[in-house]
Write a protein that binds this DNA or RNA. Structure first.
Lengths: 346, 346
DNA sequence: TGGCGGCCTGTTAACGTCAACAGGTACAGT
DNA sequence: ACTGTACCTGTTGACGTTAACAGGCCGCCA
């Protein structure tokens, strides 16, 4: 199945080539190459002549030719799904910045929809892409049974172990523990949880860690409310929790759901934090301006993005297959959505 | 499996080549090429043999070689700043999807910071990138005096005219007019405006259109409150408006600022929409779950992204320099944050 | 004096692909 | 039989770059 080939058109002249520069500067192509790549052993005068010739014709090295010859593309592929989610976006931003600063280009490979087939299609495409390595930004449950072309360095972000690739991620478990313990420390008997989608490892980890924290403190574990990261899911969960007088503390798996939850609580007349305390996860920009300002777990997406790029480039350059895990520590940001419970006369 | 490359090759073996497939299938390289590109005139049996050989060695055409040969990279560059803003993210998402479906790869070229120098640096990089065309996602004021390599097709998104490139954008002016007229229609005497950053063309257009709409209706034009898209700026503006009893209707240049504004109004005890009506811009996912749900202007980032890709590819394939403007019509989404003013006994 | 090691530059031959051309074969129409 | 046309396949060369090699020059040391 080939893509309909739009071949046939005249080959567009791309611009001046090394040979053109060489001719003008009166040197060999090799010398131009040396100047372009900052090799040693080029006479200062020669270099000057070459550089001025380059400027004259506006020479830009042709990446395709360079890649063909050297076998490296100076480019890394990022497989991403749902660019619009808070975490993905910020991480991608950081990845792009880090890659650019290291002289790598970013090849964005979107997974068009959530089906296994779409993921597989994206990975199949991969072998054809001109990249030296891959960063996977897809929640890994969807990756089950999908093979990455072998021999291509890979780093996985925002997901969890079980894969034979280096992993860089925020420490979801720690974050969830911080959130839960904060609420317990305030004096709440227990904490309810609005979870992320089941297919997401991050969501799963937050859930598990929340549960383990409650158990470690000998507290009852209330039933989990299912969610899918969306504000709407948080709203639904909020409606279900609002009428339950026993609910005094809720930990939502992300900030967006917390927003929906807050809205539902407002609607039902339950005050935050007086009646119910709420903690989110992500610390998105808006969280500080929720009503009330949201206590949440701050994740350093920047650090994760940079870490992923570093790990990948290390792998590319060494050619060795590492498999370590780098967890970035999140921190709790306490704002106005949490407070001690009102004593409702036992 | 070991390739008999006796030379100590530092060049990483990329995978099977056309020649490998040809050898196994017992045909020439050209025939493999023909099969790979779906050319006519290949015997069914031969094609089958080639395909099976391809499968056997896991053949993937080498993009670099292909690009070198054909002069096209099947890749488009996207220059973007602040990935994390709502509009940019969604548009990028749509661009990536559209490009992928058309068989183009996406090369992400981040502008690292807001300075002219950074923009210039990104554009300089450009000439070196392996792309057939560029989509510019940067608010254009920052582009003043920065030159795009000539001969490279360009499409500008999310900004305004004055450039000699095709433009695809949401119709900011229409959106702002819809928002303003909605409030006037409800019976408000006039509408206040919290603007976006001065350097942004989109912000500027919304501002201008708001003003023109008021003037067209013969209403007084209140002083503009400066903003920068951020929730915090909306909050500041809200604090300043809250104590002014005359303020009954506010139009913020985006939803995030509306969120901050709502928060400030809550804090100061002014009820929305009873005391003050609020309209935002963007219709971000969360807007429907603000407290109260936000009336806002819905932008079709999808359509913009797709349109940009289409326009660019048309330009790439025709080789001609178009210069048309495609405006996507936004629509007003009325929710609970707007209502007629309370009659405060004149 | 010869030899050696740092400098500087040029020549050659690929990297993998595909356009252009150059054959072929088969079968129809004349 | 001869020509034409549709079908199928192989050979050649070039896209722009760089690794590997092959010199050249110069000065220094033995």
């Amino acid at each position: 199945m080939a893509t309909d080939s739009t071949a046939g058109a005249p080959v567009p002249r791309r611009g001046a080539s090394q040979a053109d520069v060489a001719r003008i500067a009166g040197v060999s192509g090799q010398t131009v190459s040396r100047v372009a790549n900052g090799a040693r052993y080029v006479d200062a005068a020669t270099r000057e002549r070459v550089l001025s010739a380059m400027r004259e014709v506006g020479y830009r090295p042709n990446r395709a030719a360079r890649a063909l010859r050297s076998g490296r593309f100076q480019s890394i592929g990022v497989i991403a799904f749902e660019l619009s989610s808070v975490g993905t976006t910020h991480t991608l931003d950081a990845i792009a910045a880090a890659a650019t600063q290291t002289g790598y280009a970013i090849n964005l490979l979107p997974v068009l929809d959530a089906t296994q087939d779409a993921v597989r299609a994206a990975f199949d495409q991969l072998g054809e892409q001109a990249v030296d390595g891959i960063i996977i930004l897809v929640e890994t449950h969807r990756l089950d049974g999908v093979a990455v072309p072998e021999g291509l360095p890979v780093v996985v972000v925002d997901s969890s172990a079980e894969y034979d690739y280096p992993i860089v991620d925020n420490d979801q478990a720690l974050g969830a523990r911080l959130a839960t313990e904060h609420l317990l420390d305030l004096g709440h008997e227990t904490v309810w949880h609005v979870a992320g989608p089941e297919l997401s490892y991050s969501a799963r980890r937050r859930w598990t860690s929340w549960q383990q924290t409650l158990e470690a403190h000998g507290r009852p574990v209330p039933p989990v409310l299912p969610g899918d990261w969306s504000t709407g899911a948080g709203y639904e969960a909020g409606l279900r929790l609002a009428d339950n007088e026993e609910v005094t503390a809720v930990f939502t798996a992300n900030d967006q759901m917390a927003l929906g939850l807050l809205r539902a609580l407002h609607e039902r007349g339950r005050r935050v934090p007086d009646d119910v305390s709420v903690v989110g996860f992500d610390d998105m920009e808006e969280a500080a301006y929720f009503w009330p300002p949201l206590t949440t777990v701050h994740q350093s997406f920047d650090e994760v993005g940079r870490g992923a790029v570093d790990a990948l480039i290390r792998e590319i350059q060494s050619g060795e297959h590492e498999h370590q895990e780098a967890l970035v520590r999140p921190r709790l940001v306490v704002r106005a959505s949490t407070a001690p419970p009102r004593r409702t006369t036992a």
